[in-house]
Simulated scan of single mutants.
Amino acid sequence: MTSLVDILDLQAAIPGIQRLRRWGHEVSAVGSGDRALDIGAGTGTEVLELADRVGPDGEAVGIDPNPAMVNIANSRAAATGSRARFVRGDTYHLPFPDGFFDAVRCERVYQHLDHPATATAEIRRVLRPGGRTLLIDSDWATAIVHPGDPGTIARLATVLHTLSPNLYAGRLLRGQLTAAGFSIASVGSEAMICDPRTARILFAPVIDRALADGVITEDEWTALLSELKTGITRGDYHFSVTMFAVLGHRMP
């Protein structure tokens, strides 16, 4: 069984995610002496990058609700001698004072939120006036699976609604920031294009739920799997979802 850490490490190696993260660091312009926060830090990869950018006079903090992730991230930071630190916390109740941070980033968290407006207001609270936030998220309505029967794939897509409360998170990021009192500074996007192994791992929960709920039959899954294997063998396949990133500045 693939662990959450393995999945996060696999995702971190996807070229599209790497490109979008590099773009995000460039436009966020986190620099020496800044205080920076990463919400939903996972294994801590991006907080280590932020720690390098803020230097010894700054502060880079990662927050995650999963205590196991916090422990892993702190261990990885210690192993590299990084000054990054990680704490357990709730997206809706960030354990920091008002106006504490110069920059906040939040990647692939909004797709899991039932109340994204509450989270955005909390981000605004912990940012100083003029501070910037970078939101990055997937838009699962853009998911592409090829080859395969279009009807079967369309029914599989309906399962995403049961796994993600904010399925269209990516396209809604700009509006979330605007409504919370941010000015939009930049917008970017990348396709998260997966190789067959990564796609199999990432889409496994969708297949399991679809079969359990009777959305597709075992025969339909067997036929789809056969088509996918044939396509992979001849090099005719595609698995992707589009990710969007929005940089906003907190207005006074």
Rank of each mutant, 00 (worst) to 15 (best):
L135A: 00
A212M: 05
I232D: 12
L134K: 14
T158Y: 04
I216S: 11
L172F: 04
P147T: 08
T230I: 11
A169F: 00
A141V: 02
T133I: 10
S189V: 05
R171Y: 00
Y237S: 05
G131N: 00
E227R: 12
R234I: 14
T118P: 02
L211E: 11
L177H: 02
S138T: 01
P150V: 02
L247Q: 15
R171H: 01
P196W: 05
Q176Y: 07
A117E: 15
L225N: 10
R124W: 06
T217I: 14
L173I: 03
D149C: 07
D137L: 05
T222R: 13
A210M: 02
E227H: 14
A157L: 15
A143W: 03
T242R: 13
A117Y: 08
A157R: 14
P129C: 03
V159H: 07
F203Y: 09
E190D: 12
P150Y: 00
A119M: 09
A212F: 06
F182I: 04
T120L: 00
H115M: 10
A141G: 04
I201R: 13
A121T: 14
M243W: 05
V159D: 13
D236I: 08
A119H: 12
A119E: 11
P129L: 02
F239M: 04
I144V: 10
D139R: 02
L173H: 00
S186C: 03
F244Y: 05
T120R: 01
D208V: 13
C194V: 06
G248A: 05
G175D: 15
L167Y: 03
L202M: 12
D149F: 09
E190R: 08
H146V: 10
L113M: 15
I193P: 06
T152K: 07
D195N: 11
G175C: 09
T242G: 08
S164Q: 12
G188Y: 04
T158L: 09
T162R: 12
S183V: 09
D208K: 15
R197C: 08
R209I: 09
L135K: 01
D208M: 11
P150K: 06
D149R: 06
G175N: 15
I201D: 10
V126K: 07
S183I: 05
G181V: 04
E218M: 06
I232H: 14
A185H: 01
P205T: 10
H146L: 06
N166I: 03
V215F: 03
G235A: 13
L167Q: 00
V187A: 12
I193E: 12
T217F: 14
M192S: 09
G148V: 00
L160F: 04
V159C: 07
E218F: 05
V206I: 15
D236E: 13
G131D: 00
S240C: 12
L202N: 06
L228P: 03
A185G: 07
T162H: 09
L127D: 13
G175Q: 10
Y237N: 02
T198Y: 13
R174F: 07
R155N: 14
A212H: 09
S164R: 14
I207Y: 15
L172A: 05
T242Q: 08
R132A: 00
I136K: 02
F244G: 01
F239E: 01
R209N: 07
G248R: 01
A245W: 06
L172D: 07
A141K: 08
G188R: 01
Q176A: 01
G148R: 04
T158K: 10
G181A: 00
R132S: 05
A204C: 12
R124F: 01
